[in-house]
Computed example of a mutant assay.
Amino acid sequence: MKMDQSGILRAIGYMRVSTDEQGDSGAGLAAQRAVVEAECARRGWTLVEVIEDVASGKTLDRPGMTRALGLLDARQADVLIAAKVDRISRSTLDFATLLDRAQRSRWALNVLDIGADLTTPAGEMFAQIVAVIAQYERRLIGQRTRDALAIRKAAGVQLGTVFRIPGEVVFRIAADYAAGAGLTAIARNLTAEGIPTARGGTEWRASTVQAVIRRVAENTADHE
């Protein structure tokens, strides 16, 4: 990464709210800015610009994000920093794509709530885990497509709904486990937040969390 003449990393702060989010909430622009500014001060980084979007997080196609990525690719900054991963994207696939772009273009991404910091070796390893999870989600999408086609070919026979764990939930479980959270604690938190299980239920068990982690580990081994 290229730094300024003093050897200090140059950061772009990125903030986003959707049109239906309250500005005074924990995800508000002011709250995100405060977290980003504090981290830049702590790390001794130069915050060269703060870019804001009022847009959906479903894709990366937003004016502010487009501008930020253009500056980073042009080597006008070294780091894109955001307070929370869902401010960057709500899609695991898009987030993995962004990590890949950062590595190819030789700039770093730092997302504070999940510890995704590509300025460190641990962050680079984290990026590899995200890539595996994204591949897992791609396979699930392919499976859903095949399931839908099979239902259409069943000549009106109702085969039922196939439930899957969304990629972002798999991503969260793997990240929490990597950060040291126990299986029971992860299950308890998912249950408390009302996140649906693979079968559409509301109660998570440690054994289910363990199965998700095992699947991620198997996919990681497949890609080594």
Results as ranks from 00 to 15, higher is better:
Ala127Gln: 13
Ala108His: 10
Pro121Leu: 08
Arg106Asp: 10
Thr119Tyr: 00
Asp113His: 12
Ala148Asp: 09
Ile141Asp: 03
Ser91Ile: 00
Leu93Gly: 00
Arg144Ser: 05
Ser89Met: 08
Leu112Asn: 14
Ile141Ser: 00
Arg87Thr: 06
Ile114Gly: 06
Val130Trp: 11
Gln135Met: 15
Gln143Leu: 07
Glu124Ile: 14
Arg146Asp: 08
Arg90Val: 02
Gly123Ser: 02
Met125Trp: 10
Ala96Asp: 03
Ser89Val: 01
Arg104Trp: 07
Asp147Tyr: 11
Arg87Ala: 02
Ser91Gly: 03
Gln128Asn: 15
Ile88Lys: 02
Ala131Val: 15
Ser105Gln: 14
Arg146His: 08
Asn110Pro: 03
Val130Asn: 13
Asp113Met: 10
Thr119Gln: 00
Ser89Ala: 11
Gly115Tyr: 07
Asn110Tyr: 07
Arg101Gln: 09
Asp113Leu: 10
Phe95Ser: 09
Leu149Val: 10
Ser89Lys: 07
Ala102Gly: 11
Ala134Arg: 04
Ser89His: 04
Thr119Ser: 01
Trp107Arg: 06
Asp113Lys: 09
Trp107Glu: 03
Ile88Tyr: 05
Phe95Thr: 12
Met125Thr: 13
Arg106Ser: 11
Arg138Gln: 02
Leu98Ile: 04
Arg101Ile: 07
Phe126Thr: 12
Val132Gln: 13
Leu118Tyr: 05
Asp94Ser: 04
Thr92Gly: 08
Thr97Gln: 13
Asp147Leu: 11
Asn110Ala: 13
Leu99Glu: 02
Ala122Val: 11
Leu140Ile: 12
Leu118Val: 01
Asp100Asn: 10
Ile114Trp: 06
Arg138Val: 00
Ala96Tyr: 00
Gly123Thr: 06
Glu137Lys: 01
Leu140Phe: 03
Ile141Ala: 07
Ile129Pro: 12
Leu109Gly: 00
Ala96Gln: 01
Asp147Ser: 12
Thr119Val: 04
Val111Thr: 15
Arg104Phe: 09
Arg87Asp: 05
Glu124His: 15
Gln128Arg: 15
Arg106His: 13
Val132Leu: 11
Ser105Leu: 14
Gln103Leu: 12
Leu93Trp: 00
Arg144Glu: 07
Arg104Val: 09
Arg87Pro: 04
Asp94Arg: 02
Ala134Gln: 04
Gln143Ile: 05
Leu109Arg: 03
Leu98Asn: 01
Ala116Val: 13
Ala96Leu: 00
Ile114Pro: 12
Leu112Cys: 08
Ala134Gly: 12
Asn110Met: 08
Arg138Tyr: 01
Ala131Phe: 14
Val132Lys: 13
Ile141Val: 06
Val132Phe: 13
Leu93Met: 05
Ile141Tyr: 03
Ile129Ala: 12
Ile114Leu: 14
Tyr136Glu: 15
Gly115Thr: 07
Trp107Pro: 06
Arg101Cys: 08
Ile114Phe: 10
